[in-house]
Design a protein around this nucleic acid. Structure first.
Lengths: 228, 228
DNA sequence: TTGACTTACTTAACATCGTTATCTAAAATG
DNA sequence: CATTTTAGATAACGATGTTAAGTAAGTCAA
């Protein structure tokens, strides 16, 4: 029946209206500043109407973040074009920091707040391990590629998770410091960009071998190993 | 007058009683779980009595953290004994992660929560730049030492703040991931210890030169440069 | 000793929050 | 047309941080 469709469409409309109103408040003021009553005021409904669409405040805001994470996923997807895995890792890190700096409140909630309980939902389980969807899996896959190409610095344990998590921790730390101390005056923080660059250099040199070194096409070793 | 002294002593007693009660709640359950009313209940006073001693909840808990940070400062102080600056940096990082893992709630508040406004108090200004008191200054001073000894990896900009902040960001990221994703199931996290080790190795090799390399006592370069 | 002032503390209240229970009215369904 | 489902509203509960106003005791000068 057509009217049924219309009702569902209207319902979806209000749902996105709620999300949009919440997004504005959340982006501007953070989690605490978003209250059900203020969202309700913005959309001109009663506060409890929101509970028809979202179980509670937390799932609402998480849903919001989940949506906005499409942006980051999109950037990551584009990075598939970067052939050199180590260079791709650098780009991933750069994109990650840019995202954190641009959406501090989203970042805080997604990466700096322990998830309550419903951490593993069907959705999460479904996208688990697919690089296009799961940002960590994408990083990990790139590390696997780098390891396969023998790009690990000698002495580094060839554990993809460990290496990926170290890269992640590096940029995560840069974002974290920026978000919580970026406006402090007692510490002499440079620009995020520069700190990111130094961190990426550190990870490159600390975990991997130089691109040139491994790719030098005229080395004796390569000529010996090259099959193609 | 003696009775006046007694009164002041009693006042201090209640103050520490408040802090102790708050400490228990805070360490166990975190900032949100600490409510003025519950503290009041624990110390058997009315909730508003606390406001005689602390301006608001935030300053109370920050004061608490400030006290407990003596532990970290103490560990740092002991590290002065480590002669090699790069090794000392490693130890600083290790102590930092251990502190974060041991006192997650303290860590969250001090390093993962933007300070409201009163960031710069007299106390902070007074201890500013003294390595014994200011953990960051201690790290920075060690980096300065390392740079002075020519231990920076070629290509790394000899900016003490930049290098120090990169080391800090590295371990800060390790702690951050541990605190917010340590109990997640969707990600394959190894032990904090191992991740810390890899991160410290990464920073060592990414930012500094090998201890051996710079200290090898029999190299021609050193014999030429050595004055003593 | 007395009277004014100061300090420590309590009671009551305000504004806000997330959330639930209960109700109403409209739409979908048989 | 009667029944059931649904969307949404009103009112309320229990909790929060914080403030205003009151009280009782201590300090101190005359």
């Amino acid at each position: 029946m057509g009217s049924n469709d219309r009702r569902q469409r209207e319902k979806l409309e209000l749902r996105t209206k709620i999300l949009d109103a919440a997004r504005l408040l959340f982006a501007a003021k953070g989690y605490e500043a978003v209250s059900m009553r203020r969202i309700a005021e913005a959309i001109e409904y009663s506060p409890t109407a929101i509970y028809v669409y979202f179980a509670d405040k937390d799932t609402l805001v998480r849903e919001l973040c989940h949506e906005d994470f499409g942006a980051l996923a999109g950037v990551f997807r584009e990075l598939t074009a970067v052939k050199d895995p180590v260079e791709r890792i650098r780009r991933i890190g750069q994109a990650y920091v840019e995202f954190g700096a641009k959406y501090p409140n989203h970042y805080r909630l997604m990466f700096m707040t322990p998830k309550p309980f419903h951490d593993i939902e069907e959705k999460d389980l479904a996208t688990r391990g697919q690089p296009d969807e799961d940002a960590y899996a994408f990083l990990r896959a790139t590390v696997v590629e780098a390891i396969a190409q023998g790009r690990l610095r000698p002495g580094v344990k060839p554990n993809a998770d460990l290496v990926a998590q170290t890269c992640w921790a590096g940029v995560h730390g840069v974002v974290g410091i920026e978000l919580t101390h970026g406006k402090d005056k007692w510490i002499d923080l440079g620009s995020v960009e520069e700190r990111t660059r130094v961190m990426l250099n550190t990870c490159s040199h600390g975990l991997f071998t130089e691109t040139n070194q491994a790719r030098k096409p005229k080395s004796a070793a390569e000529r010996k190993a090259g099959k193609r």
